[in-house]
Design a protein around this nucleic acid. Structure first.
Lengths: 183, 183
DNA sequence: TCATTCTTTCAGTATTTTCTGAAAGGATAT
DNA sequence: ATATCCTTTCAGAAAATACTGAAAGAATGA
């Protein structure tokens, strides 16, 4: 196989990876294009500029710009300045564990914490000092039980996320090591 | 507080919970209405019929029917037949760990397994028997490294999910117990 | 059988999300 | 200054998703 074949084959691999990653992102509530850009920057050998991304994924300049900015805001990619180049380049973090840690932290904060807070508020609305003796009614008791079940789940999940966060630099986290050892 | 106040307060609590759960579902790639129906059935004291759901969430019969069916397909809710009643009722699983286990199993199968498979396919396309000596080029090597990093992550995540699956009946899973013990 | 009651389906509509392209905004070099 | 090159913004267009309501389908019972 000669050098240009290699280029073709590398592109084919990258395209496969990018497409699949985009599909997966979608079902996890991430916009497909953003996931694809991220996949491209992760799998690309060199940092890419805006035009690279546009051409590779067939999307407009505006779309590219907005999604690159969003990925920077998340902290999943970085701007790179090359000397003698006026335009900007972008590269992805290369440590998947670190990426996961960043995402976990943000989603915990944005989505799980509010749910826990709501559950606590609900529990407050159903305790004896709010309802008096009526709090002993079975309907109230049952609701309290459901809320408690959900609270336990969210609290434990939160704790696990917490273990990932800030511990991920340089590969497997402590949580994962514990798990792999245990099973 | 008298009995009708209790009803009002319970409804208020349920509404709070339902709204928050719906919002959270959305950001995890689950349609808001489906998440709300599920929340309603989880927090409701009695099983609900189609009209209960329609009235409570202000949605059409068609929408209700389709989402109830989808939740049944997932296995997160069950149909209930009451004697002497012609219409059907629905209730949610009450064990949050079991619900999570079901969701984890399905998402692993639908989303993570395909990514792992794609990565393996990519690796195959870049090994020496496909590329010959050219496989030693640094661009190829770097791509292989990235694929390996992602593969390790997905494999470990898959393994963790696997531990949740089928172990959840009756509360905390083995994974969680290990984790809580360790930290 | 036919009436009644409830459920499902799905074509069309509405809503939300995403994307485009052109204009405005910056930075650097001449 | 002004030309060049690149980035950002955002109003409007396009696409994807979710929802409605009415008609058809099923089950039950008289």
């Amino acid at each position: 196989m000669d050098s240009s074949d290699i280029v073709v084959q590398l592109r084919a691999v990258q395209d496969l990876f990018i497409r699949r990653w985009g599909e997966m992102g979608q079902t996890w509530g991430i916009n497909r294009t953003m996931a694809e850009i991220h996949a491209l920057l992760y799998i690309a050998v060199e940092p890419c500029c805006t035009d690279d991304v546009m051409e590779r994924l067939n999307i407009s300049r505006g779309n590219t710009s907005m999604n690159l900015r969003a990925l920077c805001d998340w902290g999943l990619i970085r701007r790179i300045h090359k000397r003698g180049e006026r335009r900007e380049f972008f590269e992805s973090l290369s440590d998947v564990w670190e990426m996961f840690s960043i995402i976990a932290a943000e989603r915990k904060r944005r989505e799980m914490d509010p749910v826990l807070e709501t559950i606590k508020q609900c529990q407050l609305m159903l305790n004896e000092s709010s309802l008096g003796k009526a709090a002993r009614q079975s309907a109230v008791q049952m609701t309290r039980q459901r809320l408690a079940g959900m609270e336990e789940f969210m609290a434990v999940t939160n704790k696990i996320f917490q273990q990932f966060i800030g511990n991920a630099r340089g590969g497997l986290t402590r949580v994962v090591k514990v798990l792999l050892k245990a099973f």
